[in-house]
Design a protein around this nucleic acid. Structure first.
Length: 346
DNA sequence: TAGGGCTCGACCTCAAAGTT
DNA sequence: AACTTTGAGGTCGAGCCCTA
């Protein structure tokens, strides 16, 4: 499974389960026996290769449909067909609405990078952090098993006691992710070191399964969809950032000085003493945005015939972290460019 | 080619350990 | 003490391969 394929699977998930789909979701779209297209099926099984949350029972979803309606587990609340965590309410509908609103919260927090707020959500860790990962724009490392997380946390210098939160460990992992490695590469690396023996086996097994399946018809389908869905998601994000940037610049400099999409330049800003070329990128890390944008922007500013001074600004969604800043300074130094990185949150 | 045996994944139950 | 989390393990059925 290459990074591109993993990324394609993620985008397939995000295309199938957009926020609107979740808002409109009914209980039987969420969990259900025999239905392969439920949200929980996607999170647990279809995207298993993006970080497994197999192991615990279906109660990790907060509510599940029992295969044998008559066998009622005594630890949970039971309806005719469903069982759920008592804390979520007294009947199926109430419980499901509460869980749905929690899931929407998780997605919102995750998209905005407010990972510490996710700790307080009632759903079991395994499931809620997988959901968070899927919507995090690859800004979490997909490792979810408690013990493995604890070993990793310890390795990164955290004191593991009962006060430690999962988000703290995730923040550490993100911090230590080398910027030239994908979250999946880093996940495999960490799992190699900190996953227990049996877990390693499971991953090996999965790898083999994927390899074998790679040649069958079944696997070509998602790959074909991959390309289109990738650009779909990326485009959506790009447009959102571009809109937000335009708003911000218009407010500050006046609408008449902000030009969209002229000669393929995402946003151009006209000022008496300079022209700003803004190139918008949707990647998850500042360094990546810069890498993708620089060539383009240099060319635009070179081709523009205006004699005013030219400023180049690469725009991404997230603030630059320490590694990104190092990269930015390096480029500035080496290339002697009037160049900035700007983040616009959406 | 029917059917026995086997494996594997999916789903589920149980109970111990942990938490509040 | 009551409830939640978690690992271990059981059951079921689909799919595969082998053999009569």
């Amino acid at each position: 499974m290459t990074n591109i394929e993993l990324n394609g699977l993620l985008n397939e998930f995000l295309t199938r389960w957009q926020i609107e789909d979740i808002r409109n979701m009914k209980l039987n779209d969420y969990v259900g026996t025999g239905n392969r297209d439920t949200f929980c099926q996607w999170v647990e099984t279809k995207t298993r290769i993006l970080g497994s949350i197999k192991g615990m029972t279906s109660i990790k979803f907060g509510i599940y449909e029992r295969k044998k309606p008559n066998k009622k587990p005594k630890n949970y609340a039971n309806g005719k067909k469903h069982s759920w965590l008592r804390a979520y309410g007294n009947n199926e509908n109430e419980v499901f609405e509460n869980i749905k609103s929690d899931i929407l919260q998780i997605i919102k927090y995750s998209e905005n990078g407010n990972f510490n707020k996710i700790d307080d959500i009632l759903l079991p860790d395994l499931f809620k952090w997988k959901v968070a990962f899927l919507y995090s724009n690859e800004r979490l490392i997909p490792i979810f098993k408690r013990d493995v997380l604890f070993s990793i946390g310890k390795h990164f210098g955290l004191t593991i006691n009962r006060q430690i939160t999962i988000s703290q460990i995730h923040e550490k992992m993100i911090l230590y992710k080398p910027f030239n490695k994908s979250v999946y590469d880093f996940m495999f690396e960490l799992y190699e070191r900190f996953g227990k023996g049996e877990d390693k086996l499971e991953i090996e097994k999965e790898k083999n399964i994927r390899k074998r399946k790679g040649t069958t018809k079944r696997n070509t389908k998602p790959q074909i969809r991959t390309t289109s869905s990738t650009s779909f998601i990326v485009e959506q994000k790009h447009n959102k950032i571009q809109e937000a940037l335009k708003e911000k610049l218009s407010t500050k400099y006046g609408e008449e000085n902000v030009i969209l999409e002229e000669n393929y330049v995402d946003v151009k800003l006209l000022q008496p003493d300079y022209i700003g070329f803004y190139e918008v990128k949707s990647s998850s890390y500042a360094s990546q945005c810069i890498r993708e944008a620089l060539g383009q922007v240099l060319q635009y500013s070179f081709c523009d015939t205006d004699t005013r001074k030219k400023k180049i600004i690469v725009v991404g969604q997230y603030p630059a972290n320490d590694q990104d800043l190092g990269y930015i300074n390096y480029i500035k130094e080496k290339l002697n460019l009037d160049f900035e990185y700007l983040n616009i949150s959406i």
